[in-house]
Design a protein around this nucleic acid. Sequence first.
DNA 1: ATGGCCGTTGCAGAGAATGCAACGAGCTGG
DNA 2: CCAGCTCGTTGCATTCTCTGCAACGGCCAT
Lengths: 249, 249
Amino acid sequence: MSQTVDRALSILPLLAEGPADLGQVAERLDVHKSTALRLLRTLHEHGLVYRQSDQRYRLGARLFALAQEAVENLDVREIAHPHLVELNEQIGHTVHLAVYEENEVLYIDKVESRYPVRMYSRIGKPVAITVAAVAKLLLADLSEPERRAVAEKLDYPMYTARSIPNAAAFLKELAVVREQGWATDLGGHEESINCIGAPIRGADGKVVAAMSVSAPNVVVTAEELLTLLPQVRRTADAISREYSGHTPA
Amino acid sequence: MSQTVDRALSILPLLAEGPADLGQVAERLDVHKSTALRLLRTLHEHGLVYRQSDQRYRLGARLFALAQEAVENLDVREIAHPHLVELNEQIGHTVHLAVYEENEVLYIDKVESRYPVRMYSRIGKPVAITVAAVAKLLLADLSEPERRAVAEKLDYPMYTARSIPNAAAFLKELAVVREQGWATDLGGHEESINCIGAPIRGADGKVVAAMSVSAPNVVVTAEELLTLLPQVRRTADAISREYSGHTPA
DNA sequence: ATGGCCGTTGCAGAGAATGCAACGAGCTGG
DNA sequence: CCAGCTCGTTGCATTCTCTGCAACGGCCAT
């Protein structure tokens, strides 16, 4: 739409491949050297491009700073909320959104079930970290030594007979979750409640949040709940795409 | 230098503060809405800007992809080399550059001492990981659980009486190095050779490489070598700045 | 010395970006 | 239910900016 800007921006992916000098840039843009020079200068003033000691150009620090700042100001919750509501409208059950922060997993959003029987949970409250589906998803994405370190520090309260009893079992469960890309909690926290969850990933593939659907046995059996998994995963993926700014150009 | 590009690029830091709609962008750029629209469209085509479901604009994923690609294609060695040579010209001793990769520390560049007595080392060869100054610097930057995991897996050969004997001592040494921002190896590998080293950091502050200066006792004492520390650190910092694309705009 | 290479600058012409005005969609309040 | 507002969008004529050219100067190697 804007030729000048279009050309200038075309320089960025070009430089991402590696440093280049003025001639190379001009050639690949198919413009006169003087034109390329002026474009590069403008990019330089904005810090998007850096001139190294051998006079060649490469991408500048500002780019990293921008990317970082953008990530910090990104609010998963804001982006996820409409998707969570939509899912809730489709399937009716309670939907949760959670993040990992300083050795805790916290609910940061919740859409109440439309069935009369509801489950107890509160936004901002720490999650039962050893059994909840969202906790498994968030912890499963940590590096191996970190997973071990966290797992060994935790307590393993036996909320029910199906609660995860110790660090070894927990690590094994995390490995499974990591592998399959989704998680469950079948009566591990409260005997009569089942959950299924899926991860939400940022642009770099790291898990930034997790969502889950919870329902009591009296409404749907665990098996029935599992049939909803594709919908849950689709929702999580949609949020991931929007969160990471899906624009394949 | 180029008004159009200048305006377009001014949108990026603006959006980094948070999502904004067309009117806000136009106002802050002090241009007509139609102009802002066309600029945003161009940025959008390049994926630098993303339009969320409420029509507002925010920074796009391409920005992250670019930053990432740029980092991957960055060659520390290429950038560091002239600095290493310069340092060698000033002080004459052997200068090394090393990186950490899959549980090993590897020399990736070396500038030979200008004194007749030289030390043995080879580019591409793994470093004595428990004693070398560069190894300490690189490992000290890992996360605490990772440091522990690595330290426990290592062997601790007693090259000399001053070699680090076990994991506990090594972890303690790493803590010191992490704190002070530089490292030494005083006869820990070969009785008669001392080293001092400093870290090279990327834009995010993480240590991407380490450099060191080595000299045998017969040329300079350990004390004399330590007086060179400021120069070494200055060189390392200069490389860090260039590597991370120092351009404060 | 000298020729070639690369980055840089001034200039005039050409083409592209700009602002305007008008349209349409969506929302709010009367 | 309609009137009136806001906000995004489009076509167009004008103007201003960007473009390519040619010439200069520094640097390196021959």
